[in-house]
Design a protein around this nucleic acid. Structure first.
Lengths: 350, 350
DNA sequence: CTGTTAGCGCGTTCAC
DNA sequence: GTGAACGCGCTAACAG
């Protein structure tokens, strides 16, 4: 109807209609130089009239700055990725930067064999190539789990920040695993627990080891009883939580609380308890890890540790931004996890 | 160390090092014209040696094609958004298109007052402006829930496709709500259920109404008993599922199965059942909607309807792509939901 | 047929 | 306040 599809108006259209040179228009737009109020006024009016927007592409060509960074997500459908991207956006919005998103779609393409780095190297390298071709000023790489990606890609000297994974040579943004499990332990102690078991993730994982450190630290500091049988090795999956919990339940001196290194294994614990007629939290207390959405919908609602994902994304973007600008790297605080208190821990002081 | 930061090599660097003109390099790169094997060989070697990648920015400036589309996500942290983006990526990857991602961050910025369109119009318009400035060839808008966004933004004639929301004037990609609830009902009937209750979402929502249509259609076709008391109006939140379930439990003729219009309300039903000592599925069967991650972690695991999110993203991108190319719009099939059979429905034929 | 020169796209910026 | 060179790659027109 009244809608007119406007052929892209350019700076010279403005110049023509306002009877000035293109240079003047540019000066008005950018305030790069003084322009007499009268001409400025005239130019501004035409600009608004024609709804002119500078062609960022052309600007970039000259300025060699695109204000665009590339985000390589190994898989956007993995639970932590969207929130990290949200943090990246948060910072990017405040600094007028744009995000070119690449999604490696790892889960769908190579299923669970993440360890086979070769299998997806070509995807990752393609992503980097395309991004560089698009003149991004830097990149953020979001992994599907915390692991070493040294040598996976070569950014040819362009800045990159890794998060939810790391390399030996580059900056990476992680969160404080040790503090997190220590905090969970402190909380349990506050609630009167002393015999506390832990179900770890795979032991080739750095987070597993760091969280175990936090556990040991708490055991030492609070002088808790220690029994190696309370340390169970899981593999992050619910099934392992289930199996380990069953073992814990049959111990001569069973723990009064279990700390599972992720919410998924916590579900396994819940299932095992359910099956054995053991009630959570009345008979045994449980803390998960990750604050996955479902942890709030379980019965009982699971107390867990919230990951500072937003902050990680924000810091990653901030760090990258400084690197692009050539500014020195600030020593940012290692993002901390936050205990989300719900209904799966009983206070046994009462 | 051995790492050399290479100043961006351009076509003329190649030309110089290979002793040819830039035109020849361009012809080699694009195969636009015949180049003698010898020179080609020489040029190719230099290109590889210097790891040259054409500057897409410069290419776009001339070709007026950026192969980039803008995705405006109202909120990337909402459960359905990542999977839709994944579908968009899937199509984009196959057609060498790039995604410039904008995240309106609606949840964090304006909390839950989504109905107040004015509150975020400015965010949306900014997003469109920036995207257009970046010369995207089209846009996909991903809503946080299915509602009418007519008049929210003006793309100035540029193609746009909406998904998980719609307008009166533009193309939008939805899924088949009516088929979904009908399918759930058929399944329940197969399992011997005839007295089936439904807990709807807010009734100003189109999905609520369509799903109710599917319910009625099944009631009619299968000649099921009908009692208006079995139709409960919820508001999508767990609390309402809880309240409505309690009402259903106290009916003189209670239903044998409940269909909740989302998994969140299904959790409410589960809680109410738990409290009342009613077992799912032994005493009452339950079907949710959305196949939210947590539905698989509940006890019992909830049978639910999986949303064709990936397909929606794929179709949105496909539709947009055709529009950009000026091709006629194909009539794509309305994506269907898929019943995910788990443990919350009992076969009462046995 | 192969290779080169020169102008273009669009906004910026320097010299006048 | 203006003309024109410039950035980088593409390509029409031209030369050998």
């Amino acid at each position: 109807m009244g809608v007119v599809v406007i052929a892209n108006v350019g700076i010279k259209d403005i110049a023509a209609k306002a009877n000035v040179s293109t240079a003047t228009v540019s000066y008005v737009l950018n305030g790069t130089r003084n322009v007499s109020p009268k001409t400025r006024e005239r130019v501004v009016r035409v600009i608004e009239e024609l709804q002119y927007k500078p062609n960022v592409i052309a600007q970039s060509l000259k300025s060699k700055r695109t204000n665009t960074i590339g985000v390589i997500a190994e898989d956007v459908t993995v639970f932590h990725t969207p929130e990290i991207i949200d943090g990246i956006n948060d910072y990017a919005d405040r600094h007028d930067m744009h995000i070119l998103l690449t999604n490696l779609r790892l889960h769908k393409r190579i299923s669970r064999s993440f360890d086979n780095v070769e299998a997806y190297r070509k995807y990752a390298e393609n992503a980097v190539s395309e991004l560089l071709g698009n003149q991004v000023e830097g990149m953020i790489y979001i992994g599907v789990h915390t692991r070493d990606l040294t040598g996976l890609i070569d950014t040819r000297g362009n800045p990159i920040v890794y998060t939810y994974c790391y390399t030996h040579n580059d900056v990476s943004i992680q969160y404080n695993d040790e503090q997190a499990s220590y905090e969970a332990m402190s909380y349990l102690v506050t609630k009167g627990h002393r015999r506390i078991a832990i179900i770890s993730g795979l032991m080739d994982s750095i987070p597993s080891r760091l969280r175990l450190n936090g556990y040991y630290k708490a055991v030492t500091e609070f002088e808790l009883p220690f029994d190696p049988q309370w340390i169970k090795m899981g593999d992050w999956e619910a099934e392992s939580g289930y199996n380990m919990a069953k073992q814990l339940f049959t111990l001569a001196e069973p723990p009064t609380a279990i700390l599972a290194m992720n919410d998924v294994m916590a579900v396994g614990v819940l299932r095992a308890a359910n099956e054995a007629g053991i009630r959570v939290p009345e008979d045994i207390s449980l803390i998960g890890f990750d604050n996955r959405e479902f942890s709030d919908y379980l019965i009982p609602r699971i107390t867990t540790l919230d990951l500072p994902l937003h902050q990680m994304g924000y810091q990653a973007m901030q760090t990258l931004h400084k690197a692009i600008r050539g500014l020195p790297r600030e020593d940012l605080q290692l993002p901390a996890c936050r205990l989300v208190e719900r209904d799966s821990v009983r206070n046994i002081n009462d």
